[in-house]
Amino acid sequence: MFNNFKYLVREGLRNAWANRLMTFASIGVLVCCLVLMGSAVLVSVNITHVMELFEDKNVVMVFLNDTVSGSDTAMTVADVQKQILTVENVDPDKVEFVPKEKGFSSLMNRFDEKLKIMETLGDTANILPDAFKVGFKDPTRYETTVQQLKNLPVVLTVRDNREYAEKLMGINQTVTVVGTWIVGLLLVVSLFIITNTIKLTMYVRKLEISIMKSVGATDWFIRMPFLVEGIVIGLIAGLISFGLVSYIYSAAASSITDVMATGVLPYGSLFFNLLMAFLGSGILSGTIGSLVSIRKYLRNDGGLYDD
């Protein structure tokens, strides 16, 4: 049986090569499909990740006027904190001061070389205001509390995480819906192409199949080389897609990190799952494609005479 297995695998590889034009076409379509699918999944995963960061929607960033700790008015941090605490729904245990130096340096860390110049300008260029991280007691009164905070004279603005979260959720849904449709469509197209590739091989090998049948080959014996061909196509497509998506992701990651404070998920954590998903879906479509296309030839018992 092992002899047979080796022989049948070799046959499948030979077919794939003999029929290489269509093999490459199939691989190409499958790669497009997998790359789009992979990208959609990665975008979605990242949005979910960002949303998790915002999960504590009960916390807002309250940015302060530059009157605060400015030279003349000289309001102390404690004074401001007292003002903030006048808002009834603010949880006194969840009020934390974020000085502008810290906010600035953490921002700076995310920018690359071209913005280094700002650093040399020192404090005068320190454009981020001081801020408080503020938590609420009762999340259901979120909106009124934010409004109350905004009305405080010391407060410049309140960064509302809810707005971000809702926008992200919207993007996520769009990506999911559009992605699903594109992927579905491409899957059909690639199955069609793989099926036709194998049908073409089959046409070339009709004589061989009919001889196989006449000397008593079982359906699985006849199927195996075609299955191998389909799997090889799927495997190669999976690997290429993985390479492409990895490259796109790392390129996108560096530019996104510049813009978005949260950055993207490190690729390392996704690497293995993504590789498995690509190989899995590649092999699956190859297998389905080959089994579907050969079915017709195996259903009847005839064809011993004609090719």
Binding site: M1, N3, N4, M212, V215, G216, F221
Partner: peptide, 11 residues
């Protein structure tokens, strides 16, 4: 050989 291979005969 092909006709023999089909039956699972060894090389």
């Amino acid at each position: 050989a092909f006709a023999m291979r089909v039956t699972g005969a060894s090389t």
